[in-house]
Amino acid sequence: MIDAASLLLSVAGLIFFLAGTVGILRFPDTHSRLHALTKADNLGLGLIALAVALQAESWAAIAKIVLIWALVLLAAGTSAQLVARVALQQGGAPGSGRDDAGPDAVGSTPSGQRDPAG
């Protein structure tokens, strides 16, 4: 029973890692690719962490798995924002490939509004 749950969760985790990679390879612009990395990867790692926690030999081992997962989550929430910001600043640089126009050009989006200083 527990083994079956582990199998299922770990396969699901692998599928989300695959989704992250597919997104990073397929999505058309840098920021969309960053979405794929941040969200799919973390879900993948979370599911694999859950799968192996079910098989863990002790409570301490489970606690270590939780700690590892929490650290990766913190790193993901931080590096996603930092890398997104750098990509935004370098987006207009020549030779950087196609990227979206950035929030300075958001006037047309329904929920956004023009950044006064942009």
């Binding site: 979405h35 969200k39 913190l74 929430g77 924002q81 997104a84 929030p103």
Partner: peptide
Amino acid sequence: AEFSLMPGTLVAG
């Protein structure tokens, strides 16, 4: 950080 993990949104600071 939370919005970067939620559906469809990513925050650049």
